[in-house]
């Protein structure tokens, strides 16, 4: 079966930032996410470091990514298809299989590696 490809990762997809500005997905930069979180209220950007990448035993075709998230270094695990792009701080779009990402989305990616720090979002803690 064909994988379900969220079309927001297709090259050329129009993304609305929290500032109202529109950008193509391939033109996004780290600052766009940081600024958007700042003005959105209630959301904040976390730094999520990739600490392990494995192929899933339970769900063939998926990869299991282990992250340590935020200042508390909480451990979070997610299963994703290898073509799923993540935005790495200072580097841009990255996936476990840049070849598949290019095939399916047309989006140019770096190779996601252990040690990469990805942009993730979480709820802002009340003061």
């Amino acid at each position: 079966p064909a994988p379900s490809n969220p079309s927001h990762f297709m090259k050329g997809a129009i993304i609305q930032l929290a500032t109202g500005e529109l950008k193509r997905v391939e033109d996004l930069q780290t600052q766009d996410f940081v600024r958007s979180a700042e003005v959105s209220g209630g959301l904040k950007i976390d730094s999520s470091m990739v600490v392990d990448i494995r192929t899933s035993q339970q769900r063939p075709g998926l990869v299991v990514l282990h992250f340590t998230v935020g200042e508390q270094q909480s451990k979070v695990t997610i299963d994703v298809p290898p073509e799923h792009p993540f935005f790495v701080f200072g580097q841009g779009w990255s996936s476990c299989s840049p070849e598949r990402t290019a095939q399916l989305y047309g989006l140019a990616c770096h190779h996601l590696q252990v040690g990469d720090v990805c942009v993730s979002i979480t709820l802002q803690q009340p003061p």
Binding site: Q16, S48, G70, V76
Partner: peptide
């Protein structure tokens, strides 16, 4: 042309709080 919100592109990773 569809327009997607910025927050749909990055994962929501909620750390599990333990206090």
């Amino acid at each position: 042309v569809p327009v997607f919100p910025w927050h749909s592109l990055v994962p929501f990773l909620a750390p599990t709080q333990s206090d």
